[in-house]
């Protein structure tokens, strides 16, 4: 790791102030990706501003079907929230399968979303749940937030403070893990609202990151059942090919994971 300077913020305001004084500052949430990247010398921030001790960024509130999750809430806390489980068990289940127990104790929902790893789980949930990404300066619809591989709509120095969404009537997430890294080789989050609106978001497979699959969505809007997926064609041309899986195989996994997610929702 290259030299860096560490700062600990106790409020969002302080964090923004700290980073504005840095040459090339970066916010540090759970650090489960950032520290690993810095260890490999692939990132070299001059300053790190630790968000883990900002009380206002933690916690889960459920109001009717409205959900708000503080950005510094760990995967473990999302996975084990009884209130959240009652309205949207799919996101608890998703969080309980991120990384491993130790990663879940440190990693945060805000950190994961801000990083937008193309194989991360949360971005699929955000898109399918039509979530709002709340920052220190504005609110961004998930649809506008994820802009490419490791790219988001966040401005420099902007902090995600929370995410908010309306719990859907039905939802589920299914992923097929990469046998080595255990990240999603393909993960599909499905959500259906009472008005019949269906969203299907895919992570781990797209060569441009997380995306919604319109074909699946319209098929499932017409017939919310695993069988409806059978005749949907998945175009492999925009999917990733790597050491572990070809685009064609990922296209197959999108269908299979969608089917299974619908069955589980």
């Amino acid at each position: 790791m290259y030299e860096t300077n560490y700062h600990r913020a106790s409020s969002v305001q302080e964090a923004v102030k700290l980073i504005s004084g840095a040459a090339e500052g970066k916010y540090l949430a759970g650090g489960m990706t950032l520290i690993a990247t810095m260890k490999q010398r692939l990132a070299a921030p001059s300053d790190l501003v630790d968000l883990r001790h900002i009380a206002e960024m933690k916690g889960i509130t459920v109001n009717g079907r409205s959900v708000r999750i503080g950005a510094a809430t760990t995967h473990h806390d999302v996975a084990s929230s009884v209130e959240l489980e009652a309205v949207c068990p799919a996101i608890c289940a998703l969080a309980s399968h991120i990384g491993d127990p130790h990663v879940r104790h440190m990693g945060t929902i805000g950190g994961s979303i801000a990083n937008n790893d193309p194989a991360a789980d949360y971005p699929a949930a955000m898109l399918a749940l039509d979530a709002t990404i709340v920052t220190n300066s504005r609110e961004i619809a998930a649809a506008d937030f994820f802009t490419g591989l490791f790219e988001t709509a966040l401005n420099d120095d902007e902090i995600i403070t929370a995410i908010a969404f309306e719990a859907p009537a039905k939802a589920a997430y299914r992923k097929f893990p990469n046998p080595a890294s255990r990240y999603a080789m393909t993960g599909v989050f499905v959500a259906r609202r009472d008005n019949g609106d269906v969203r299907v978001a895919v992570t781990g497979a797209g060569s441009n990151g997380v995306f919604r699959h319109q074909g699946m969505e319209s098929a499932l809007a017409g017939n919310w059942s695993p069988d409806a997926v059978g005749n949907v064609s998945v175009d492999a041309s925009d999917l990733m090919t790597d050491l572990h899986a070809s685009a064609a195989y990922r296209a197959n996994l999108i269908k299979v994971m969608t089917k299974r997610a619908v069955a589980a929702a």
Binding site: P179, A180, S181, R182
Partner: peptide, 16 residues
């Protein structure tokens, strides 16, 4: 080398 870490070299885990 394309498999230079546990991100790409699949080690048997307990659930395998």
């Amino acid at each position: 080398l394309l498999t230079a870490s546990y991100m790409d070299y699949a080690m048997p885990r307990a659930d395998d």
